[in-house]
Every structure is written in structure tokens, then in C-alpha cells.
């Protein structure tokens, strides 16, 4: 009884969505869809170049193109605030951090022949198989779903701020604590071991194994 009712309801809902999306075929795309498709092709191409190029710095620069393309996709989906946060945080700081990391680890400028490991064919198999499965499932599930992009933007700064500070205040504050912890952790991890012995030698040797890190440092220095 309930199953029959649920089935009837789902059938009705599916019919409704089909009718709603029936007037929008894939063969007559709207302007927003064409723009989304073109920017999506650019983004996907930049992502593929990012994971396949042999020049390490070029990989970081193509990552900028991929992340910027994603920001444009957010704008096309009327999520303005997310788009600008994406530009500020990803393009502005994360890529700069990655470039600093590449330079501090003395990454070779130019082509490095060992950028890919030996299991790249297995990786390609896994990636293509999962891409095929995911695209098949996603297309089958959302073939008839239509997103209405008209009207007021769904992600303007006002709307996002209101929902963030009305409904999501507690996770937001917890996230600020997490960012503080990550900052302190990054400082502790990247501090030099010499400063570790000088500053923390008097008070921090008791809880840890005596001289574990310092001895290793000395041996590494000798080697």
C-alpha cells in the first residue's frame, strides 16, 4: 500500500520533472549552457595539462587557469560570493603557496623526466574507469533535471552572508578555531630544528624522547 503510494508519488514527480525539463532539450542549449560548456572545456583541458605536464612550474600555472575557470563557472551558476572567494583564496594564495613550495624544494626548472611514476598506466585505467562510471551514473540520474537560473542570484553576498551568520554560525566559529590550529601547526612543523633546541630545549625535552629529533638532525647533517 505504502509502496504503491510511494511509487505513484515518485512516478508523478518524475512526470512533473520530465514535463518541466521536456521543453529544454540538450540539442537546443541556452546561451548560459553554451558558455558553461566552453568554459568547462577550458577548465577540463587545463586540469588535464596540470596533471600530465612534465614541467613542474607550468603545472602550477595551468592550475591557475583551471581554478579561474571554475570561478567563472560559479559566476554562471549565479554564486557570486563563492566565485570571488575562489579567486581570492585559490588563485590568490593557494597557488602562490604551491609555487613557494616548488621553489623551496628546488624543483627543476624545465622538463623533469621523472615527474610521473611508473604506475601511470594503472592510474590512467583507474581514472578512466571511475570517470566512465561516474559520468554514466550522473547523466542517467540528472538527465531531466533543470536548474532555473533566472530571477535573483542564488548566491549573492547578501544571501550567503545571511544564511552563513544565521544558520551556520557555530560551524563557522569552529572553522575559525581549525584555521588557528592549522596556522600554529604549520609554524611548528616548518620551524627549524636549531630553533627547536634553542627555544624549546629547556622546557620541551622532558615529555619527548630525549634528543630524538636533534640527534636525527645531527646525523642527517653529517650525512
Amino acid at each position: 500500500m505504502t509502496f504503491a503510494a510511494a511509487t505513484a508519488a515518485s512516478m508523478a514527480a518524475r512526470a512533473a520533472t520530465t514535463v518541466a525539463a521536456g521543453q529544454h532539450g540538450f540539442l537546443s542549449p541556452t546561451g548560459v549552457e553554451i558558455a558553461f560548456l566552453l568554459v568547462g572545456l577550458l577548465t577540463f583541458g587545463a586540469a588535464v595539462v596540470t596533471v600530465t605536464t612534465k614541467q613542474l612550474v607550468h603545472a602550477a600555472l595551468w592550475l591557475v587557469v583551471a581554478l579561474g575557470g571554475l570561478a567563472v563557472e560559479y559566476l554562471l551558476l549565479t554564486a557570486e560570493f563563492i566565485a570571488w572567494v575562489q579567486v581570492l583564496i585559490y588563485v590568490g594564495s593557494v597557488v602562490v603557496l604551491l609555487l613557494f613550495g616548488l621553489m623551496l624544494t628546488k624543483a627543476p626548472i624545465g622538463r623533469s623526466p621523472d615527474a610521473d611514476s611508473g604506475n601511470r598506466w594503472a592510474a590512467l585505467t583507474v581514472a578512466v574507469a571511475s570517470a566512465g562510471a561516474l559520468v554514466w551514473v550522473v547523466v542517467d540520474a540528472f538527465r531531466t533535471t533543470w536548474v532555473d537560473l533566472g530571477g535573483a542570484p542564488a548566491g549573492s553576498t547578501e544571501v550567503t552572508g545571511a544564511s552563513l551568520f544565521q544558520n551556520w554560525v557555530l560551524p563557522f566559529e569552529a572553522l575559525s578555531v581549525l584555521l588557528l590550529a592549522a596556522l600554529v601547526g604549520a609554524i611548528v612543523l616548518s620551524r627549524k630544528a636549531k630553533a627547536d633546541t634553542a627555544a624549546g630545549g629547556t622546557k620541551a625535552t622532558a615529555p619527548r624522547v630525549p634528543g630524538s629529533r636533534d640527534g636525527e638532525q645531527d646525523k642527517e647533517g653529517v650525512r
Binding site: E33, F36, L37, L76, T145, W146, L149
Partner: peptide, 8 residues
């Protein structure tokens, strides 16, 4: 816009 585009 079809939801399939961003999902794919």
C-alpha cells in the same frame, strides 16, 4: 541550465 552539465 541542465544539472547534468556541472555534474559531468
Amino acid at each position: 541550465m541542465h544539472l547534468a552539465y556541472p555534474a559531468v
